[in-house]
């Protein structure tokens, strides 16, 4: 899975959100290392929607006033894809540690 998509899915794992919020979450979770530029962000959102991993949802009640934003939420498929990728990354990290430790 592309890192960008992984980060977006991860950001959405905390609950439905909109583009600007997703960017902020990704930015803060990666300590500013991952920068989502607008076109990349929205392009990825389109692609993830098309893949069925996320879906557009009505704004949650507390954000009802924010008419201009489209809200996205993780679908079950998206969640399992995220879990699968996380497991894969864990495996990668574990092996990497075992290789790197002696040095």
């Amino acid at each position: 899975m592309k890192p960008i998509r992984y980060h977006i899915l991860l950001a959405l794992a905390g609950g439905p959100s909109h583009g600007a919020e997703i960017r902020r979450r990704v930015s803060s979770e990666s300590d500013g290392a991952v920068v989502l530029y607008p076109a990349m962000l929205y392009g990825s959102l389109d692609e993830l929607t098309a893949a069925g991993w996320i879906e557009e949802v009505d704004p949650p009640p507390e954000h009802a006033s924010q008419q201009r934003w489209r809200f996205y939420a993780l679908t079950p498929e998206g969640r399992s894809a995220l879990e699968g990728e996380t497991a894969r990354l864990e495996a990668v990290v574990t092996r990497a540690r075992s290789v790197l430790r002696p040095a």
Binding site: G19, P38, D46
Partner: peptide, 15 residues
């Protein structure tokens, strides 16, 4: 694409 996301992209970029 612009019609769907243009306004949000502007806002995101402004931020």
């Amino acid at each position: 694409f612009r019609a769907r996301h243009g306004a949000e992209m502007e806002a995101v970029f402004a931020e």
